[in-house]
Design a binder for these strands. Structure first.
Lengths: 120, 120
DNA sequence: ACATCGCATAGACAGCTGTCAACATAGACA
DNA sequence: TGTCTATGTTGACAGCTGTCTATGCGATGT
């Protein structure tokens, strides 16, 4: 509740423990954090990227597995992955030549609960 | 699974019965529909509007209840409500002079489940 | 009839966003 | 060393988006 929160928190962390959307009016700050998360997810390419990574065996996928699924240039895919990573929805790990992305399922679970949980 | 789905379906309806994001890779069409929904929700003002309406007593609120909560012009609020209504997240009903909006909680529940449900 | 109120629409405009081509980087291998 | 492969970065640009002012339109009240 400080006047200006430190920017070291990713949107994902801020959403971790919020009352569901339908229970009480969201604060402005909370709305901005959640909106940032949703904005990262609100793109067809990024949604499919998240889905591809999350449903991939082992829960992770390297970029080479992903680019083939789209008719887009590699830099564009890289850009979208960066967006998802910066918001905290994807984890990055470089192993040898390849970079592996892993979905943060708790983040998705928290976000889903915040949106979908019914009012008591 | 038809080649081109009829456009009479709102995004909300299309999302009603989808496998969760983490279970299997989303199709392009599904991704576009879900992204449209998320895009409608991925704005701080619209998020707060949804939250205000959903958590309001009776599950509905008239526009006059909403405009006061923002430092925005009335047309801007009207615009955001229209976006939420057109995607199927809000229902509209005119009663006398006032217009009441009601949150479609099943739509929110479906969307939340699609995002947050863990892989089996 | 006239003014007022509640809400929507139209048009304009700055700022953001998705995409690409070109380039950069870093490791593997010959 | 040089080259190839996998990925990220930069800069540019068209298209979208959130906001405003001005206006419209129906219902209510005087």
């Amino acid at each position: 509740m400080s006047k200006s929160a430190p920017l070291t928190l990713t949107p994902v962390q801020t959403v971790a423990c919020c009352a569901p959307l339908s229970r009480e009016p969201m604060s402005r700050q909370q709305a901005e954090q959640v909106a940032a998360l949703l904005k990262a997810l609100a793109d067809p390419v990024r949604l499919r990227l998240m889905s591809l990574v999350a449903s991939h065996e082992g829960g992770e996928a390297c970029v080479c597995d992903l680019t083939d699924a789209f008719d887009l240039s590699q830099p564009t895919i890289s850009h979208h992955l960066k967006v998802l990573h910066e918001t905290g929805l994807l984890d990055r790990e470089k192993r040898g030549v390849w970079v592996y992305y892993r979905a943060r399922t708790e983040a998705l679970a928290n976000l889903g609960a915040l949106i979908g949980a019914a009012a008591p």
